[in-house]
Design a protein around this nucleic acid. Sequence first.
DNA 1: ACTCTATATGTAGACTGGCTACATGTGACG
DNA 2: CGTCACATGTAGCCAGTCTACATATAGAGT
Lengths: 111, 111
Amino acid sequence: MNPDALRGHLDALLLSVLEWEPLHGYAIMEALQERSGGALTVPTGTVYPALRRLERIGYLSSEWATVGGRKRRTYRLTESGRKHLQGERSAWQEFTSVIGGVLRPEVRAEH
Amino acid sequence: MNPDALRGHLDALLLSVLEWEPLHGYAIMEALQERSGGALTVPTGTVYPALRRLERIGYLSSEWATVGGRKRRTYRLTESGRKHLQGERSAWQEFTSVIGGVLRPEVRAEH
DNA sequence: ACTCTATATGTAGACTGGCTACATGTGACG
DNA sequence: CGTCACATGTAGCCAGTCTACATATAGAGT
């Protein structure tokens, strides 16, 4: 998929993946891959900075854990993030409806 | 609407508006505004460079006309552009299906 | 006359967010 | 030992959109 198209929708994807369970960065990348049926491969250089940004804003909180000798930073959705996810979802609805409406091949009415 | 979200979809919008009739830049802006129900206000600094880019690629061709003392550069879809529009349309379908699939609030199965 | 609005096209430069490429380290398996 | 999967992170690039500006005509209103 055209990587450009992701612009402005990545935050929503990340928050959405974290809606039901806290996950660490690597697991988030896997979850995106899996939940998109393999269509979405978001590189580390995209995910990690984005997670930090979302934490800075206050939509996520994180804590370190060590599992099997490996360090993980696990992110969880804050209340503020949960609210924002709702907003992102309705923004997505509006976005697809607007663009889709313009894009839809219109059958010209006879006149 | 978040202007960032337009990224990577503007070409499709422009080609789509030109599908059935050639239009000049200003009319294209109006058409986008109207066909989106007022949600889309694409500024001149976005539209004009984009049209030139699409012409350079070969998806559009243009010619000058003078109507009522005003000069217009009218753009029309080329065959190549028409084909590309098909591709953009299916790309849009896939895009919305992939992102929408990840974004959709999933009701967790009991287990 | 003058002003304002709509019509019409265009460019320079800033901004920004996702991507490429790289750096670093552990554990497991052969 | 080498290689792969796991795991996190940053510097700098890049392309496309936006802001702000420049220019010009026509028509309506005062």
